[in-house]
Design a protein around this nucleic acid. Structure first.
Lengths: 345, 345
DNA sequence: TTGTACGCGTTATCAT
DNA sequence: ATGATAACGCGTACAA
């Protein structure tokens, strides 16, 4: 009675009457194997049901066959952001079919981001990482490079980077929102932005100001940390000030929903007194009342594009810079004609 | 000029003047090493800055030092559920300090759940998994056991299980919501439930019915898939029917917010005409108008308790069954006194 | 084409 | 009781 043991490469070699090394060559489709031996080897392998051992391969190649995402945002902010789930689903779409695995690490106040990357790198728990929420002068790029990891950035960094990037022109999304509002007759428009330290926060704010200038509008921008709390607070400030905007463009849906709550609490009707737009087109926006006009990006497609770019880089490809389809504005009930000005009414 | 190379156990052995094997024994605190040698070995290791190679250890022990979470819900449903982020943060709190890594896998319609578990298991990408969203007669328990993985379940399964479980009495949360509504004078109350196939969906529905019976209320339950879309649809049905409820208890916040939208669209005032309660106490509930009365659970604590239980199991501990603190009802603006009945008004 | 050394920690076996 | 030695896992790379 023989113990059920997983077949090793040595078993295959014995079975095919060749050496271990040759088996490895044959199975990796490399030259230097006669077609006769190759056939015998492949046959033996399939006879025995052999599959390579991940851990042995890992030891001899130094690769881990895993990629990582480090979540650096505070749990509260990220917890409510559907973007990440979609992104991760997109990454998984790609990783799953290529034998990679996705490692998710959370940087906490206690364990800083840099340490988290270092931890993943010095055990080489991952071969590469996806850098999300790019920041101005992002230190992580140099860090990750120094740690010897591959990476792909979501969006083009503003610093020198040896890594591929996959970008979405979220500025275009903001521009279409502003154009939509301008066409509806709004003049005094506000933007509840993300933090200027985050590139997409800043990029959207820049796009907002540029689009407002183009349309000859009177813009105002308030920065937040992307959380519902700060979104609500910013809205409160904007609406209780003297020269109140008639439209607010939010940098994400989450803040837009919170802002809607604030407006309603102040007795303003949306969109009659105030138009609002979100960003991300989350599921919920469709069902609230009024339903939310929002900029739709395809986070899942973004994730799979990023995953592919990372895998390419891991197999030695040169860095590339891909631009995904422009986001589109989904117009719903939360935007409407600007209220006629008090002077005219 | 010598190449900078990571010190191996052989280097430590040479440095300490002993054999490789003895070094391993010493470093793993195993008997058979004289205190003198042990001291020399530990010194040599720290001199050289030696740390064990994860991949070598992995190869020789067969462990991967990673744990997995397989997300089985459809991306749309999960994308909006903050529960997972908090859960994962809690798991990471524990894993990070114990050298484990969290592997996140997403089961898609294309790649079924069972295959996903199998994929993780036969390369032994993970040593154990966290089973979330337990289902009635959950097949995954037998599957995971057959695959030779350790596991911990979130909630007690209704089938024989060799694994530890960590539970939250979400039924108590629902009961407190129903009691709150009963105290406000509501008689005709509805529950927009999760799917009966999911244990927490069913458990909450059961708790709702039991609590309603206790309070002598007139209950109705509608099952959904936990999505905003079905939550909205269920609400529409409930509110356009003849004997309309004066209060709706939702099985999650997401559906409650969608339901709120539907009610407002129908011209109902919340809470004057209709009271609603959510479950999870998500961030957003605080900021919408009216703010949402909701059952608060501590998903992060749940995650870390589950993580600890899994690690214990991996180091050979017997299965345990832990119950976490009961969820609490956070009362906000979306619940109020029952409208006086038409007959009396 | 083939045999063999290598990567590296763990553990079983054997010697003192 | 201590310690050394060698086998093990398994794919890869290189010299023969």
């Amino acid at each position: 009675m023989t113990v059920q043991r997983r077949p090793t490469i040595a078993d295959v070699a014995r079975h095919a009457g060749v050496s271990k090394g040759l088996v490895s060559y044959a199975l990796n489709d490399r030259p230097g194997v006669s077609s006769d031996s190759r056939k015998r080897i492949l046959e033996a392998a399939s006879d025995l049901g052999w599959t390579p051992s991940l851990r042995a391969r890992s030891l001899s190649t130094g690769r881990s066959f895993a990629c990582g995402v480090v979540v650096g945002r505070s749990p509260d902010v990220i917890a409510a952001d559907p973007f990440f789930h979609s992104l991760i689903a997109g990454l998984e779409d790609v990783f799953a079919v290529s034998g990679q695995v996705l490692v998710l690490a959370v940087a906490t106040p206690g364990r800083k981001e840099a340490e988290t990357y270092r931890g993943l790198a010095d055990d080489r728990r991952v071969d590469g990482v996806v850098l999300t929420d790019l920041r101005a002068g992002d230190q992580r790029i140099a860090l990750v490079q120094r740690l010897g990891l591959q990476a792909v950035t979501l969006g083009r960094p503003d610093v020198e980077s040896p890594f591929s990037s996959v970008s979405v022109d979220d500025g275009a999304g903001i521009r279409s929102a502003v154009a939509h509002l301008a066409a509806l007759g709004h003049r005094r428009v506000a933007h509840v932005a993300g933090p200027p330290s985050m590139m997409h926060g800043q990029r959207r704010a820049d796009a907002f100001l540029a689009a407002a200038a183009d349309a000859g509008l009177d813009p105002v921008v308030v920065a937040t940390d992307f959380s519902a709390a700060e979104g609500a607070e910013a809205t409160q400030r904007l609406l209780s000030g003297g020269d109140r905007p008639t439209a607010i463009v939010y940098s994400n849906d989450h803040m837009a929903v919170a802002g809607l709550g604030v407006a309603q609490r102040l007795g303003l009707r949306v969109p009659d007194d105030l138009s609002i737009t979100g960003f991300d087109d989350t599921d919920l926006g469709r069902y609230i009342h009024p339903s939310l006009t929002s900029v739709a990006t395809d986070a899942r497609a973004w994730g799979s594009a990023a995953g592919r770019a990372l895998l390419d880089a891991l197999s030695g490809a040169a860095p590339t810079h891909a631009d995904l389809a422009e986001p589109t504005l989904i117009i719903r009930e939360s935007t409407g004609p600007a209220p006629s000005s008090p002077r005219r009414g």
